[in-house]
Design a protein around this nucleic acid. Structure first.
Lengths: 104, 104
DNA sequence: ATTATAAATCGAAAAAATTCGATATGTCAA
DNA sequence: TTGACATATCGAATTTTTTCGATTTATAAT
């Protein structure tokens, strides 16, 4: 866990929104997992296009954000066909909250 | 509480260190409060010069950091004579940790 | 094979953060 | 009241982040 990279990733409204949306994907992305057959359902995962649409930023920007958040450990991704699904890494977010009131 | 400003303030190693040092001031600043008579002791407060010395950055940089952290709410300051003492705002740090695992 | 679609990567312009030395301001001591 | 010291503020150079459109890569459908 690299706290500084995590805090940097959290220092942006759009990225913070994405993380928040992914907390309740079915609520914020109604047409969730439209491309996925049930057998390969990725729990809590949303594809880049759906996130981009909601985030109101360019495709490259959103892709970059998601990549940065994944590198920091906040998200994890699974590719299915031409789609990449991103979901939260709740365990790391929990660790960060813990770090915040022990180390910091 | 402005989470983005808080995360920005935390996105820097020196600032993170300062916050950490101020968690146990007597441990990290041995000659603590040398200029203060006991009557006006500021619990947990350390003056800018002592922080600067430990942080190994220029005076203006450290002053700027402390100001930014105070604006974000992470620190509070008290002036005594020509010295400004900074200490942690533990309540806000607690709130941020809480926000992290409820909102985010 | 060709075409269409999703996502990643590239390259660059603009905006913001970092960091410093110099200067200003406020306070204390002689 | 002058000089010394602590801190804040200013102005600027450098670095980093933001953000985009264009291109590339990977996969799917015809």
């Amino acid at each position: 866990m690299e706290p500084i990279d995590l805090f940097k990733a959290l220092s942006n409204e759009t990225r913070l929104n994405i993380l928040h949306w992914l907390k309740e994907p079915e609520k914020h992305f109604p047409k969730q997992q439209a491309h996925l057959p049930k057998e390969v359902s990725i729990k809590g995962g949303v594809c880049v296009g759906d996130i981009q649409e909601k985030a109101q930023a360019s495709q490259s920007t959103v892709s970059h954000y998601l990549n940065m958040m994944q590198k920091a450990g906040l998200l994890e991704s699974v590719r299915y066909g031409q789609w990449t699904y991103y979901r939260r890494n709740d365990e790391l977010i929990r660790q960060l909250a813990e770090y915040l009131h022990t180390e910091i």
